[in-house]
Computed example of a mutant assay.
Amino acid sequence: FSPADRWPTIDAFKAELIALGGTFRLRAAAMTDVGRVREHNEDAVLAVDYTRESLVDPAQSHLYVVADGMGGAEAGEIAAAIAVQTIRSYIESRLESARGEVTNGAELLTAALEEANSRIIEYVASHPESRGMGSTGVCALVAPPDAAVAWVGDSRGYLMEGATLRQVTKDHSLVQRLIEIGQITAEEAHTHEHKNVITRSLGARQSGPAGAEAVSLKLKRGDKLMLCSDGLTAHVDDRQIHDILGRNPDPFDAARELIVAANAGGGTDNITVIVVYAS
């Protein structure tokens, strides 16, 4: 309804229509860093592309996973590794049976996270010394232009559309719950004494589901998707994320600068980030 939002000429409108019918390309960078305080990196990261070559019916899909493990005696590293491996195996088996087609990414990802939850519970049952271990998880499955993001815990997913950045996940954490019921503000959450307490995680219970959630998205050319562990968001706020994603035309440079910024802010935890650019 606003004239300022309309195409200035018929040629500009035509160019947009041609672009919409063209090839959709994704560029991604995945990085993880131990940070400045921890001795071990208990995060795990995965970025993998699936392509079905066909002149008649080609297909492409992309899986991205960030897992933030927790638990002593290197148990966190094991939990994160189990999460990533299980999610990958689950998605690959479903893609293979569906000949590479993704029909409901959100449903697939939540099921994959719940499968990872079961595998971690089974590991703890057979390794009592690892009791208390678990992992958060955030993952994205993209079959352009469709995308889905699913999560458990406080690892996050963000989408940048044009100049607008929004968090598409909602933390499963105590401070998020306090924000929702009005006891604290989002600003107060950053310094709250219980800011690291999460309310859901993979392997948190001896039985039952983890409570994974998911959202479905439609990507457009120029959109930027970011997944990260809380080691990033503990020190880099949304304004800085917006600035870094907006300034860097290459996802590798954006991912590297995000990790540098988290370390510059203190680096008190492991830092993992995946940046995906659609063009």
Rank of each mutant, 00 (worst) to 15 (best):
A112W: 01
S2Q: 12
R36G: 00
R256C: 04
L109F: 08
E101G: 00
V37I: 12
V275D: 01
E115W: 01
G182K: 01
L109R: 10
D250P: 00
A255Y: 01
A143L: 03
M160A: 08
E213C: 11
D238T: 07
L63K: 06
E122D: 15
P249V: 11
S155C: 12
R94M: 08
K220C: 13
I181P: 02
Q183T: 11
E129D: 13
N196L: 07
T191R: 13
N41Y: 02
N270F: 02
A261R: 15
A81R: 13
I10K: 10
A30E: 10
S173L: 09
A143S: 15
T169A: 05
A143K: 08
R52T: 12
C139Y: 00
A15S: 14
A28S: 14
S201C: 14
V168Y: 00
N263L: 09
I241L: 11
R256K: 14
K14V: 10
L258T: 03
A28K: 03
A111N: 12
T32A: 12
G100E: 09
Q85E: 15
S2K: 07
A47L: 11
A67H: 07
L227T: 12
T51G: 02
E77K: 15
A143D: 08
T272M: 00
G182H: 02
V138G: 11
E74T: 11
P209V: 15
D146F: 07
P144I: 08
G203N: 05
R131Q: 13
T272I: 02
E213P: 01
A186G: 04
R52P: 06
P251C: 02
M31C: 10
A59I: 07
D238I: 03
R239V: 14
D43L: 10
Q176P: 06
A98S: 14
V37M: 09
G72S: 10
T233E: 04
D154Q: 12
S61H: 04
P145M: 05
I244R: 09
I179P: 04
T169N: 06
Y50G: 04
A30M: 08
N270Q: 05
A278R: 02
R256H: 12
H235M: 10
P209G: 12
R256G: 01
I244E: 04
P145L: 05
E77R: 14
A44E: 04
P249Q: 14
I184T: 08
A29Q: 04
V142S: 05
R131L: 13
N263V: 09
A163S: 15
T9Q: 07
E257M: 06
A254Y: 10
A140Q: 09
S89Q: 10
P209D: 14
L113D: 05
S130F: 04
T23D: 14
S93Q: 13
E39V: 06
Q206V: 13
Q85H: 11
I244Y: 02
P128C: 13
D223V: 02
N117C: 09
M133V: 09
V45R: 09
A140E: 09
A44V: 01
R99W: 11
H40L: 14
Q206R: 11
P128T: 15
E188N: 05
W151S: 15
